[in-house]
Simulated assay, not measured.
Amino acid sequence: MARNLLKNPSGEEQLEFWELTENGGSQWKVEDMPGDCGHDFCSDGVTKYFVTSFELCMKRQVIDILAEDYSPEQLDAQPAVTVEDWYCGRTDCGCTYLMTVCLLDENHELIQDFKPEPVTLDPDSDDCSWKQVSHTFSDYGPGLRYISFEHGGQDAKFWDGWFGVRVTRSSVTVEV
């Protein structure tokens, strides 16, 4: 089974290993599951999540795949790269979720990306429970050396505090 190349995917180490690319409002925070007006996670073992604020909050990790013990030959064979993320909202405030994952070459030039449309969760029409987004890259050509994983969002009502989207159990795997 392929291992998760993201470090600290659920906030067990607060914001360690994440680059805060946007940190608006009350800024990023880590909370314990299920949190105020929240939902328990759908599987055991996930006890924390990251939560965004009333202004845009985005965080990123750039994975050096060669440093993770993959060879250039393995990567040039175009192994499947699977990214997953889990997000939810509060039951009392809507929010927006954003995600961008980029496959990059040795010069950090874009090979291929996955950028789904922003997701808006509205507690008036959605239960705002945990939802998964997943994508597998294939046939992207040789040269993969880095993977940039970025996600985040904000709340929809601009309430002061941490009422925005919640994210946890993010993963990036390379199947060789």
Rank of each mutant, 00 (worst) to 15 (best):
A2G: 08
A2H: 02
R3H: 13
N4A: 06
N4V: 09
L6A: 01
N8G: 05
E13W: 10
E13G: 08
Q14G: 05
L15M: 12
E16Q: 15
E16P: 07
F17A: 15
W18D: 00
L20R: 02
E22C: 15
G24P: 05
Q27G: 14
Q27F: 10
W28Q: 01
W28H: 01
K29E: 12
V30F: 06
V30L: 03
V30Y: 03
V30C: 04
D32Y: 11
P34M: 05
G35R: 07
G35H: 01
G38C: 07
G38V: 10
D40Q: 09
C42Y: 12
D44C: 08
G45C: 00
V46S: 06
V46D: 04
T47Q: 06
T47I: 08
K48L: 02
V51W: 00
S53Y: 01
S53H: 04
E55M: 14
L56R: 13
C57Q: 01
K59V: 00
K59G: 02
R60D: 04
Q61A: 07
Q61E: 08
Q61P: 11
V62E: 12
V62F: 11
D64M: 07
I65N: 03
L66P: 04
E68Y: 06
E68C: 11
Y70T: 02
Y70I: 08
S71H: 11
S71M: 07
S71N: 10
P72N: 09
E73A: 15
Q74L: 03
L75A: 03
Q78I: 01
P79V: 08
P79F: 03
P79K: 05
A80N: 14
A80R: 09
T82P: 08
T82R: 15
E84N: 15
W86E: 00
W86T: 03
W86M: 04
W86D: 02
C88M: 09
C88W: 02
G89Q: 05
R90N: 03
R90S: 06
C93T: 14
G94V: 04
G94S: 04
T96S: 14
L98K: 03
T100W: 09
V101N: 00
V101A: 05
L104W: 01
D105S: 05
N107Y: 13
H108G: 00
L110P: 09
L110G: 06
Q112C: 08
F114G: 01
K115S: 14
P116S: 10
E117F: 14
E117G: 10
V119Q: 15
T120H: 14
D122C: 11
D122R: 10
D124F: 04
S125M: 11
D126A: 06
D127G: 12
D127H: 11
S129K: 02
S129L: 08
W130M: 08
K131W: 07
Q132T: 05
V133G: 14
F137P: 06
D139L: 02
D139M: 04
G143L: 00
R145A: 10
S148M: 13
S148Q: 15
F149S: 11
F149C: 10
F149W: 11
G152Y: 07
Q154M: 15
D155A: 12
D155S: 07
W159D: 05
W159L: 11
W159I: 09
W162C: 09
W162L: 09
W162D: 12
F163A: 02
F163D: 08
V165A: 11
R166P: 02
V167R: 03
T168N: 00
T168Y: 04
R169K: 14
S170M: 11
E175R: 11
